[in-house]
Computed example of a mutant assay.
Amino acid sequence: MADAAPIQSDADLAHLARVVREGVGRLNWRMRSESDSDSPGPAVLAVLSRLLRAGTHTPKELADAERIQPQSLTRILAGLTERGLVTRTPDPRDGRRHLITITPAGVDVLREYTGSRERWLSGALERALTPTERQLLGLAAELLVRVADA
């Protein structure tokens, strides 16, 4: 790996943004191409992941957190409820709202999907990168999470 010059200008930052976007986009495309045709879509995975990580949410909280249009979330939740991957229960504090919780079956679906993608990715990392490069990628991944959460 060549030594990178320090980011000092708007043009440097724009170039870095483009390279990161392209790299993340290509990796995302490749990981999706490794999935089978029955795997959940990205929005479904985002909802299940949010519920697993952060617990029960109202539909509005889910829509806001995942930046999904309420109408789209309604369709997603209907499908997840029908498949038994989430439950909808009335909010005891406000009967007009519902609380959405991931079920054990939803956890299983999410773990199977993420497990198969992570197995592919760990093999690709082992084949393509040196141990030092893998260590650097770990640091970069932590930074990408920080950027995504900013």
Rank of each mutant, 00 (worst) to 15 (best):
A4Q: 12
H57M: 14
L136A: 13
R117I: 12
R67P: 02
L16W: 12
L62W: 14
G79D: 10
G41Y: 06
L73Y: 04
R18K: 03
A141P: 00
S33P: 00
K60G: 15
T56Q: 15
L129V: 00
E66P: 02
L110I: 02
V24L: 11
N28Y: 03
I7W: 02
Q135F: 05
G84W: 02
G115Q: 06
A78V: 06
R67T: 14
L136T: 13
P104V: 03
S39N: 08
R26W: 05
I68F: 01
N28A: 13
T103V: 11
P104M: 09
V20G: 05
L16P: 02
Y113S: 06
R32H: 09
D36M: 13
D108R: 15
L80A: 14
R18G: 02
H15P: 00
L110R: 03
I7R: 03
L143Y: 10
A150W: 01
R134M: 11
I7V: 15
H98N: 04
G106N: 11
D91E: 14
L136W: 14
V145F: 03
E142H: 10
L27N: 06
Q135R: 12
G25I: 02
I100K: 01
L143W: 10
R21T: 07
S35V: 04
A5G: 11
E133P: 01
R21W: 01
A54C: 08
R119Y: 09
N28L: 08
L27V: 05
R21V: 02
T130N: 05
E133G: 06
R146H: 06
K60M: 15
L125P: 00
L52V: 05
M1G: 14
V86Q: 04
A105P: 02
Q8K: 14
H15S: 08
L73A: 06
L137N: 04
S33I: 06
L110N: 01
L125A: 11
S122R: 11
D64S: 08
E22F: 03
T58R: 13
D91A: 14
R96S: 13
R117G: 06
A150Y: 02
